[in-house]
Design a protein around this nucleic acid. Structure first.
Lengths: 339, 339
DNA sequence: TTGAAAGCGTTACCAG
DNA sequence: CTGGTAACGCTTTCAA
């Protein structure tokens, strides 16, 4: 009933009456081995379902071909999609991935890092937890020369490569799209002001207004907290202004969907009365009515880029690089007042 | 610039002027070692930041403390949430997880399984791909005594443990809910008929009709393939019937959202003209208009249960078990014609 | 209480 | 072309 011991090179060698080295070489197609021998060895290997023991190889080479990942959580679409990109590139290159989550906690992030180092992964990919302000646990890796790449929430950019999205540009594009398709007064719903993404996206929004010589009105900007309920509340507030906006940029998917609800409740039409743009990667933007125009993160691409960068470092090229993956404005039906 | 070789037991032994065995024993708190010695060894180990080489240990014990997972994809909330549950239980027990995705392809599923076996994971968790009809690749594992647990889409239940949701019951509850809240003719949109979840949910739906002495009409059942487009197409077909349904049970979230689009396009009201229930996770069902009544899976719990089962097998208890995690009907606004 | 040595499965080097 | 052997880092007898 116990797990059977898998077949080893030695088993094959004994059965064939040759040495272990010969078998090893034959299986790797070493040119030193005769065609006849090779055939015999390979036949038996297939028959016995031989699989090289990865532990022995890792022990020898100190390289298990495993990449470690630390994300704040794995359930959020944004992260799981990035992981998906990482995974595919890794697999294509003969690597497996191990995923750990920090649950946005500094302490757990350190724990995850510790675990991954103990497992002796060949490289590590990290998106910082919201709590993390001290980065010394990562500096350690630098000293040990363990390859590390950050994405999205990054730090120590002089030491480690990183992949980020262009938040400023994406908000700018969205705002400009409003202005080019018949909207005049654009409102902005954001999250807590200390967050980088909030700062950057708001900055992009304001910049677009400035570029188009549109006076900035403070009451059109509502920043409080990211979430569906806040989006609803914010949109209600904006629409109750004496001079309400005729377009709203929701800085995340939940904010935009909340805003959508508020607009519907007022019996206003989207986009005729109020145009709406959100940020989302999810298929769900197509499920609502009208389908939501949204800034789409190229999450899968980000994952690919991150993994490629890491593999580059693993391969021995230690040059630090910063990759910016642009966002795309996916225009659907909620944003254009004109055709 | 190269990765430094990590400290080994031998390094410690040399520095302390004792044997490797002594160091090994001291670190494991073997009672044969003197307190003084232990202290010295542990001090140095900490100072040198010693970490046992997992490959050496795995080579010896053939047990890397890694669990392999095969899911159809990792981006879908349903799977990532289950993975999250698996992950937490695994980690609590000193295991890491490796995730692979079959992308719903039979061939890739075999490939994933192959990979995981090659990595010599200690146990494997699988949710079958939609394409998979032949299960012989899993029977192999049974012969090799590699622990395996299925969840959601399962097979070979006599050989392997599994975790499922109560699909029959959930579909029954949803159907009964329709009948109790003013709907008379309930349609059903499902997926490919060979899938267990399709069979079961359909069965629950049919059972509810029988229990309520409602004649079963074949044309109210549309089973083809899971997906948004199919849901849209199916609902259009159902609503085009000479005697169309006044309620539709969509067997997955994408099917239900697709159906919602079709209903809207016909300018029918939800739930007054056509009531609708889907299967989905919490968040997005609230974003659509009207908020969608849906069967909610306790995905995290399922993940936990699955992993616990696997760990049980790994620990040597090979008794096959079936765990059923109940669904919850989350009533929102799309389903009741009466209050 | 400690040490020496075998062995886990593989590769790589040196002989023949 | 093939065989022998050391080495990777650790645990585990068996001896002392």
């Amino acid at each position: 009933m116990n797990k059977k011991r898998p077949v080893s090179l030695k088993d094959l060698a004994k059965e064939l009456g040759v040495s272990v080295s010969t078998v090893s070489r034959a299986l790797k197609n070493s040119p030193e081995i005769g065609a006849e021998m090779k055939k015999r060895v390979k036949m038996l290997a297939k028959e016995k379902n031989y699989r090289p023991n990865p532990f022995a190889i890792s022990l020898l080479k100190n390289a298990p071909h495993i990449i470690g990942i630390i994300v704040p959580d794995i359930v959020t679409h944004y992260y799981s999609s990035i992981i998906s990109g990482i995974n595919d590139v890794a697999r294509k290159n003969g690597y497996s991935i191990i995923i750990t989550s920090s649950y946005e906690k500094y302490k757990l992030e350190i724990q995850c890092l510790e675990d991954l180092v103990n497992i002796r992964v060949e490289g590590i990919i990290v998106c910082l937890s919201q709590e993390t302000r001290d980065y010394s646990h990562f500096e350690m890796l630098y000293e040990q020369n363990i390859p590390l790449v950050f994405f999205d929430r990054i730090c120590l950019t002089d030491k480690f490569s990183s992949v980020v999205t262009d938040n400023v540009d994406s908000a700018m594009k969205a705002t400009v799209h409003f202005l080019e398709t018949g909207s005049k007064r654009v409102g902005f719903i954001g999250g807590a002001n200390h967050l980088d993404i909030v700062k950057q996206r708001k900055h992009g929004y304001l910049q677009a207004l400035r570029d188009n010589k549109i006076p900035i009105e403070k009451e059109l900007v509502y920043c409080e907290k990211i979430g569906y309920e806040t989006g609803y509340k914010a949109a209600k507030a904006l629409l109750s202004l004496p001079n309400p906006p005729d377009a709203i940029l929701g800085m995340t998917d939940s904010l935009a969907f909340g805003a959508m609800k508020a607009i519907r409740e007022r019996n206003l039409r989207i986009p005729e009365d109020v145009a709406l743009i959100g940020y989302t990667d999810e298929i769900h933007s197509g499920y609502v009515d009208p389908p939501l125009t949204a800034v789409t993160h190229q999450t899968y691409k980000m994952g690919e880029a991150t993994c490629k960068l890491l593999l580059k470092h693993i391969a021995g090229d230690y040059s630090v690089e910063q990759v910016v993956v642009p966002c795309i404005l996916s225009v659907r039906d909620s944003s254009s007042k004109v055709k």
